[in-house]
């Protein structure tokens, strides 16, 4: 059974997501989108994924919002003759069909934290990490042991991707320095 806090959070996330899609003023959209990210971060924390929650709060709500605001300063805010996006009938039909498909699958999801969730049906993988992560890597956080130990090569690729993003931005903007010499 969901608590009042969960229900309120669910309504908040849904409202901000709808507002992000429907509002036309870009500044309002950026602010509402930041609120949506904050709501999602709380959701992740509630679903016992604190690592994802921290990333969502720092990158989604914080850094992305500031980058979008800077981009807004760089461009212009056009005059608005109406507040809300006008609905596009064909897009609404596709959206409605997708919504029906997604809602029809909701009943098949296992409850949060149940022991008979499908993820436990493959103990060769999950149980291995839980049982051997400490003896293999000597760190108590199993997530870190997977990221930096078992999947260290993938993490190296991800780190290089982040580095490449910085270099690519320098190239696109025709600059040689991030700040000043």
């Amino acid at each position: 059974m969901i608590s009042a806090f969960e229900a309120a959070l669910f309504v908040f996330v849904l409202t901000t997501a709808l507002a992000t899609a429907l509002l036309r003023d870009i500044l309002a959209v950026i602010i509402v989108f930041a609120a949506y990210s904050l709501g999602m971060a709380l959701f992740y924390a509630f679903l016992l994924a604190p690592d994802v929650a921290m990333t969502e709060a720092a990158i989604g709500a914080g850094v992305t919002t500031l980058l979008l605001l800077l981009a807004l300063v760089k461009t212009s805010r056009p005059d608005l003759d109406y507040w809300l996006e006008r609905p596009n009938i064909s897009a609404l039909v596709v959206f409605g069909a997708l919504l029906v498909v997604i809602i029809s699958t909701l009943g098949e999801f296992p409850a949060v934290g149940t022991a008979d969730a499908p993820i436990w049906e493959n103990p060769a993988v999950t149980q291995y990490y839980i049982e051997n992560a400490y003896s293999d890597t000597h760190v108590t956080n199993a997530v870190t042991s997977v990221l930096a130990g078992y999947r260290g090569f993938d993490t190296f690729g991800e780190a290089v991707v982040v580095f490449a993003a910085g270099i690519a931005t320098l190239l696109v903007l025709h600059r040689e320095v991030f700040t000043r010499e």
Binding site: L70, S145, F156, A159, R175
Partner: peptide, 26 residues
Amino acid sequence: LEAIEIGGVAPIVASVVVGLFFLLAA
């Protein structure tokens, strides 16, 4: 493992986040 966490990933992420911001601001 600690060395790639502290000396590898964290400096890359922090500096690229700051760098992207200043580049956009520039």
